[in-house]
Design a protein around this nucleic acid. Structure first.
Length: 595
RNA sequence: GGAGCCGUGGUGAAGUUGGAGUUCACGCCGGACUGUCACUCCGGAGGUCGCGGGUUCGAGUCCCGUCGGCUCCGCCA
């Protein structure tokens, strides 16, 4: 035997183990050398226990204990003993006992780590990513990975219990038009041709429905070559689901049950079902977002009718141009200085707002440069509509609906966070439904699918294809949790005539449609059941359940904002021979200064 | 593609009107210490101030460029 193997884990030892002879394997968290007696905190994935080297009990072990340093890997044999009452450490779960070491073996030495292996460290993330294997040693990272495992298993178990089959689909697949930029993989045996990594298994799961599998799922990696965010990585994991012969309501309620179950099992919280539902229009109107954070109020209030004829030019002229005027009531913030408001204006500007009008109500006084343009009646109407109390600050944006929603929606979230309006213990699930099927793309001068080209319209809206395609509502639904879109899906088109109308609305000719989606359309000719599904963002769900604010904390080996892996230093250049074999020639982009 | 913030011993920070790589905390190394658990005390080592230019007698500090990290907009379902 190369080393003595453990018979128990560090973090599990309790008072009831007193008297037992144990063997522990683990890492040295910390050594405290008091000259005679040496204390060492020994860590494994279950936690920490204090081991003691006493020269009077075992001088040989004590001598080895003297050589220990942080992150050494050791095997120790010793007896679990109760601590004296005055030396109990209430901060440790194992604090009532300690292990008196009789034998110790240094399995491996370690260099001094670049940062402490402990929670709540304040270290540049670059360094954490470079030494990710050390970062992952930290208990909070371990717990997140463990939580991720549990969540994944619960999804799998639930879907299994409902008769879903987990089926793998190709990673080397075909580049599809629409949607995100693809990651491409060259095909050596087919020079000049490329596979694309899947953005999602969308088409394959629909084909599985055509194949009669009825209930499919897959916990699957997806790839999108777009710019990153705190909640967006180039490769991420979906819980991908598709069903046949279920309608939208049946699928949604099954998914609610699944999420409630996951929350109960993982965090022991009771989630009420059915979830609250908002139409897309309502979400945009009240929260300025299609993924509203429903843990707090501060809803957007429409004052367009009051603003329409008011004396404030900016408002009235915006209304004449077909815009709208909305506001939020920032409770108790009437004391904001001119500088504070300037900051808010800059913030709103990022979302396209050209200005930010404000009014503050302080002890019967109305502050703010726009107040003088409103009549007493108008002020009264605004106060009434926005439920103004003393010390409230009102912020208004007058613009196109999209700008109003984006800027006020962002301000609402900013205040929610900064004023502590958000109850962090809350899990506010909701469905957003009735998305528009199509969206007008100003650049391309055509309609594009908001979800994707196979999304089924609501039956009563089908006739609008000929008159007003922008008004068609889709049988699509997003699951929203605490301001994040955690899943989205739709019922799919299974009738040929509807699919043709859809392609026509998107401006695809028969030939184009055949070229792009031919195999799917061919398949649809052979008896397609009504079907529909949903895909959940596993990383995001774990992030929220774990209370983390970055997706990187839920992925063992994530990438930086510029899509690099600091540990492996990928991506990297490759041997010219490899390129030659792939029939690829690389030319570097010119710097923009020689234009 | 764009904006903001950041880059100083291993880690986190401070660094004044431009005046010696200066300072603090943690860590590290050596010594002392038999009940610590943020051990304590004494001593010590450790630096391309991200990188490249420029201004200046002199740059961590000012200017220009560039690289990298984080956050956001665009992009992305």
């Amino acid at each position: 035997m190369e080393f003595q193997q453990r018979n128990v884990f560090c973090g599990t030892l309790r008072r009831t183990d007193v008297g037992k002879e144990v063997v522990l394997n683990g890492w040295v968290q910390k050594r405290r050398d008091l000259g005679g007696v040496i204390f060492v905190d020994l860590r494994d994935r279950t936690g920490i226990v204090q081991i003691v080297f006493n020269p009077e009990i075992n001088p040989e072990a004590h001598a080895v204990g003297d050589k220990l340093r942080s992150e050494y890997v050791v095997s120790v044999k010793g007896k679990v003993v109760e601590r004296d009452p005055e030396t109990v450490n209430p901060n440790l779960e194992t604090g009532e006992i300690e292990v008196q070491v009789n034998e110790i073996e240094i399995i491996n030495q370690a260099k001094t780590p670049p940062f402490f292996i402990e929670d709540n460290i304040d270290v540049d993330e670059q360094i954490r990513l470079k030494y990710r294997y050390l970062d992952l040693r930290r208990p909070e990272m371990y717990k997140t990975m463990e939580l991720r495992h549990k969540v994944t298993k619960l999804f799998r178990d639930y879907l299994d219990s409902k008769g879903f089959l987990e089926i793998e689909t190709p990673m080397l697949t075909k580049s599809t038009p629409e949607g995100a930029r693809d990651y491409l993989v060259p095909s050596r045996v087919n020079p000049g041709e490329f596979f694309a990594l899947p953005q999602s298994p969308q088409i394959f799961k629909q084909l599985l429905m055509v194949a009669g599998y009825e209930r499919y799922f897959q916990i699957v990696r997806c790839f999108r070559d777009e710019d990153l965010r705190a909640d967006r990585q180039p490769e991420f994991t979906q819980v991908d689901i598709e069903t046949s012969f279920l309608n939208m309501e049946e699928l949604m309620s099954m998914m609610e049950e699944m999420m409630a179950k996951v929350c109960k099992e993982v965090l022991n919280i009771d989630i009420e079902t059915p979830f609250q539902r908002l139409t897309y229009a309502e979400a945009m109107d009240r929260y300025g977002s299609d993924k509203p954070d429903l843990r707090f109020g501060m809803e957007l209030v429409d004052i367009s009718d009051i603003a329409e004829n008011c004396g404030f030019q900016v408002f009235s002229s915006t209304m004449k141009k077909g815009g709208q005027v909305k506001g939020i009531n920032v409770k108790g913030c009437a004391h904001y200085s001119r500088k504070d408001v300037d900051e808010l204006m800059k913030f709103a500007g990022r979302y396209g707002a050209k200005g930010l009008a404000w009014m503050a109500f302080k002890d019967d006084e109305i502050k703010g440069p726009i107040a003088k343009f409103f009549t007493e009646e108008e002020i009264a109407a605004i106060k009434d509509r926005m439920q103004v109390e003393n010390n409230d600050l009102l912020l208004f944006v007058a613009d196109k609906p999209k700008v109003v929603a984006d800027s006020l929606g962002a301000l609402r979230l900013k205040f929610g966070k900064e004023l502590g309006l958000i109850d962090e213990s809350k899990f506010a699930f909701a469905w957003v439904v009735d998305f528009p099927l199509l969206e007008w793309d100003e650049e391309a001068k055509r309609y594009v699918a908001l979800h994707h080209p196979f999304t089924r319209p609501r039956p009563e809206d089908v006739e609008l294809f000929d008159t007003d395609p922008g008004k068609i509502r889709a049988q699509a639904y997003d699951m929203v949790l605490n301001g994040f879109e955690i899943g989205g899906g739709s019922m799919r088109i299974y009738k040929r005539d509807v699919q043709e109308k859809m392609f026509k609305a998107l401006g695809f000719s028969q030939e184009e449609a055949q070229e792009k989606f031919g195999f799917l359309l061919d398949a649809f000719e052979y008896g397609t059941p009504p079907h529909g599904g949903i895909a959940f963002g596993l990383d995001r769900i774990v992030m929220i359940l774990a209370g983390r604010s970055s997706l990187r904390d839920t992925i063992a080996f994530p990438k930086t904002a510029s899509a690099r892996d600091f540990m492996t230093d990928a991506p990297s250049t490759v041997d010219p021979k490899q390129l030659e074999e792939l029939s690829i020639r690389v030319f570097m982009p010119k710097k923009s200064d020689d234009k």
